[in-house]
Computed example of a mutant assay.
Amino acid sequence: MTAIPGKPGSGELTEVPEPALADGSVLVDALLLGICGTDLEVIEHGLGNQPPGEERLILGHESLGRVLEAPAGTGLEPGDLVAGIVRHPDPVPCPACARGEADFCRNGLYTERGIRKRHGFGAEQWRVDPGFAVEVPAELGDLGVLVEPGSDVAKVWEQVEMIGSRSWYEPATALITGAGPIGLLAALLGVQRGLEVYVLDQMEEGVKPSLVRDLGARYVTSLDQVGEQVDVAIECTGVGALAYGAARLLAPAGVLCLIGISHREAELSVAYEALNRELVMKNAAIVGSVNAARRHFVDAVDALLEADRDWLGRLITRRVPLTRWQDALDRSPDDVKVVVDLQG
Rank of each mutant, 00 (worst) to 15 (best):
V42F: 05
E148Q: 11
T111I: 09
L305I: 05
A96S: 09
E161Y: 15
E235R: 04
D80P: 03
E196N: 12
E204D: 14
G227L: 08
L249N: 03
L27N: 03
G114D: 01
T173D: 14
G122H: 02
G37H: 01
G150E: 02
E124K: 13
L195E: 07
G194T: 06
E267S: 12
I261Q: 12
A274I: 08
I259W: 00
A172D: 12
T237W: 00
I261P: 10
I58D: 00
L57R: 03
R113Y: 00
V28R: 01
A186Q: 08
H88C: 01
V207T: 15
L249R: 08
Y219C: 10
Q192H: 14
L81V: 11
C94G: 08
E135C: 11
G240A: 14
V220P: 05
A186D: 11
R116N: 08
L32K: 02
V197Y: 12
A138G: 09
L109G: 03
R295W: 01
R314I: 10
R113H: 01
D29M: 03
A243S: 13
Y219T: 09
G144K: 04
F104N: 12
V153M: 09
A266K: 07
R264I: 04
G227H: 03
T74L: 08
R193L: 04
P91L: 01
R277N: 13
A292K: 01
V207E: 12
R213I: 07
D201G: 15
R324E: 15
P93M: 04
V26E: 00
L140V: 10
Q202H: 12
D334V: 07
C105E: 03
A70N: 09
L47Q: 09
V239T: 07
R248A: 15
G84E: 00
I234M: 10
D103T: 02
L322F: 06
A72H: 10
V212Q: 02
D327S: 13
P209C: 11
T14K: 12
L315S: 10
A187F: 05
E148A: 05
R118Q: 07
R248P: 04
Q159T: 10
V301A: 06
P252V: 11
D224Y: 05
T177A: 06
Y219K: 07
P209D: 12
E12G: 10
D327P: 06
D308S: 12
V232C: 12
L175R: 03
R116M: 07
L188R: 07
D103K: 02
S332R: 15
P89I: 00
A274P: 01
L140M: 10
M1D: 06
I35Y: 05
A102V: 02
A292F: 04
L258G: 05
P71S: 10
L195Y: 15
R166A: 09
A179Y: 04
A243M: 14
D129G: 14
D308V: 08
L279V: 13
L315C: 11
F297I: 13
L200V: 06
G100W: 00
L13E: 11
V16K: 02
P252D: 12
G227P: 02
V156G: 06
G194I: 04
L215K: 09
V336P: 05
E204A: 15
E69S: 08
A22R: 08
N49Y: 05
R193W: 05
G141W: 12
W311P: 08
G178A: 09
P51H: 01
L200K: 11
P71I: 05
A187V: 13
L175P: 03
R113L: 00
P93N: 10
G180W: 04
A217N: 09
